[in-house]
């Protein structure tokens, strides 16, 4: 048994998805100008990963669901400001900025894979705008990935935890506040149980 101060946040699918995506994205990037076959297959793999991840965002575990990490723009901006001032709240799941980043990455990757597949159909073969959209979105995504890594680093330092390791193991430290509340809930349950017992 794990000590109760830790909590499982990322399920096996999310972790497998993440690191497979990282590897296939790097392979696709490197193979772009070297090998059509490798580039196309890594692209198909990314498309398959995206589709399953999006489905998992609706039916998956708690912290994998879109509903758990989509925040309104004001919350996201406030969170970013707090982060830069090193006073942001700690979230056990994705924080508001992280959630927005995930949506941005997923949308960009969808555009990249869609235009990529279009480029090898006879209809869109050699059509300039498709290729340009593909390349521009790739460059945009590289910028997002840089910000993604910067965000992970900043949040890790701010809350003294290794978020990268959490994406490997799935475990995170429980939130202090939650710990206290959990203890209170536990106590209340115990009391209620006792009361019920006396009531017999």
């Amino acid at each position: 048994m794990k000590p109760p101060s830790k909590i499982k946040v990322w399920d096996a699918f999310v972790r497998l998805f993440h690191w497979s995506l990282v590897v296939s994205f790097v392979v696709a990037w490197i193979s772009a100008e070297q090998s059509d076959r490798v580039h196309e297959w890594s692209g198909y793999l990314i498309a398959a990963l995206l589709i399953t991840r999006i489905a998992w965002g609706f039916v998956g575990t708690k912290h994998a669901r879109f509903s758990s990490f989509i925040y309104n723009p004001v919350t996201i901006l406030k969170f970013l400001l707090d982060s830069l001032c090193f006073r942001a709240k700690r979230y056990v799941g994705h924080n508001p900025a992280g959630g927005a980043m995930i949506i941005a990455l997923l949308v960009c990757l969808l555009v990249i894979t869609t235009t990529g597949i279009m480029m090898i159909t006879t209809t869109f073969w050699g059509i300039k705008w498709v290729e340009e959209l593909h390349e521009i979105t790739v460059n945009l995504t590289l910028g997002l990935i840089f910000l993604h890594l910067a965000g992970v680093l900043l949040a890790s330092l701010e809350h003294q935890e290794n978020l990268v390791m959490s994406m490997v193991t799935g475990w995170k430290r429980r939130n202090e506040k939650n710990k206290k509340r959990n203890r209170m809930v536990q106590k209340r349950k115990k009391k209620k149980a006792q009361e019920n017992w006396h009531g017999f």
Partner: peptide, 16 residues
């Protein structure tokens, strides 16, 4: 423990 936090972005930056 925090080394990985620095090394990994470095590699990613170099690759990009």
């Amino acid at each position: 423990m925090y080394k990985i936090l620095f090394v990994v972005p470095m590699i990613a930056a170099a690759l990009s």
